[in-house]
């Protein structure tokens, strides 16, 4: 199969396909708590969340980061992902629908290979940015 992600085919300004997720329900959070081993009750127990001063349970930051990972691995197989990081800039409320977006901001050579620096982020359907980060992906 021809490799589409080479340094000659990927350019600064290229947009990754948006990754659009369905709204986050209480079931989503219960399943993610169990599957991710993150049992912090702020995400699954409304009584606990309210006692901690929150309106209700809210989504794990790592759920949105898992969605961001899906956007990246749909664009390039995960063996190409060298490093990435994100800041959690706002909580993701219950019922929010997350969209992940990414854009190539630099093509550079490092450690003997071509790499793309991709600016990445996630947003709620109210257009609140919840993660702000950057990924480095190896090109063929």
């Amino acid at each position: 199969m021809a490799d589409l992600l080479t340094e000659t085919r990927v350019a600064v300004g290229d947009r990754l396909p948006d990754h659009v997720l369905p709204p986050i329900s209480r079931t989503t959070l219960a399943l993610f708590a169990g599957a991710s081993h993150d049992h912090v009750p702020l995400h699954i127990d409304s009584d606990f969340a309210r006692a901690a001063g929150m309106e209700d349970v809210f989504a794990h930051g790592m759920l949105s980061m898992a969605y961001l990972a899906q956007m990246l691995t749909r664009w390039a197989p995960q063996e190409r992902l060298r490093r990435w990081s994100a800041r959690f800039t706002a909580i993701t409320p219950l019922h929010a629908a997350v969209t992940c977006r990414g854009e190539v901001v630099e093509i550079f050579e490092e450690a003997g290979e071509w790499r793309a620096r991709v600016k990445i982020g996630s947003w709620t359907d109210k257009d609140v940015q919840t993660l702000d980060g950057e990924a480095v992906v190896a090109l063929a």
Binding site: F48, G61, M62, R83, A86, R87
Partner: peptide
């Protein structure tokens, strides 16, 4: 206490799958 923490940043570097 769990009620006082928030996730601030998260980063990964990979060397092999």
């Amino acid at each position: 206490p769990m009620s006082r923490v928030l996730h601030g940043e998260q980063g990964f570097t990979y060397h092999r799958t």
